[in-house]
Amino acid sequence: MADHIKTHPEESLEGAVVFNVPIPTDLEALTGMAPIVIKYPYHIDYVHSYGQDSPFFAGLANKKLLGTKCQSCGHTFATPRMSCMQCGGATKWVEIPHEGKVHTFTVCHFGSEAFLPECPFVLALIEFEGVDTLFLTRLMGVDPLKPSMDWVGTKVKAKFRRLSQLKPTDVWFVPVGS
């Protein structure tokens, strides 16, 4: 059957509000009763601190990509960490280049509830000259419906939000020349 012909409606958590259900007088009949299923909403606002990583987000707000470099072994992290994963040395803040290459990518056609409205979107890991680790970001300026292995290795550059949200999505990458 063609994809656009539906055989059943979408399931949803909307429904009637019920305040009572029938019960038999014979309690023996309760064994094997159909389960009662209720909707139970739960909303949370977290107070999330970026802690020692906060300068990274201040950098994004000022159109800078800040990573860290180990003061002992020189290992450079595109996503900052204040203690070197290679040697345990202390790291210092350094600027990461705004141009790099796509190391790998995917197109998400589905996802977490928070990002469903944005599907399809492209996730990518970016590699930079002189930097030892990769950087997770959104890749834009490509057609998400026409993915190709040729995207790997594409030269890309960073773009920044004019109005920062202090989230890692304040930066994203587009192909150089687009």
Binding site: G111, L123, L125
Partner: peptide, 30 residues
């Protein structure tokens, strides 16, 4: 999917589009 994606760094990874199938897809593309 969102609960599972919370098993990724919530400062740097989850907010970019947290989705485990997406993470594994990037691995296999490489």
């Amino acid at each position: 999917n969102e609960f599972i994606a919370l098993a990724s760094d919530v400062s740097f990874d989850f907010p970019v589009g947290g989705f485990y199938s997406g993470y594994y897809a990037m691995m296999v593309v490489r």
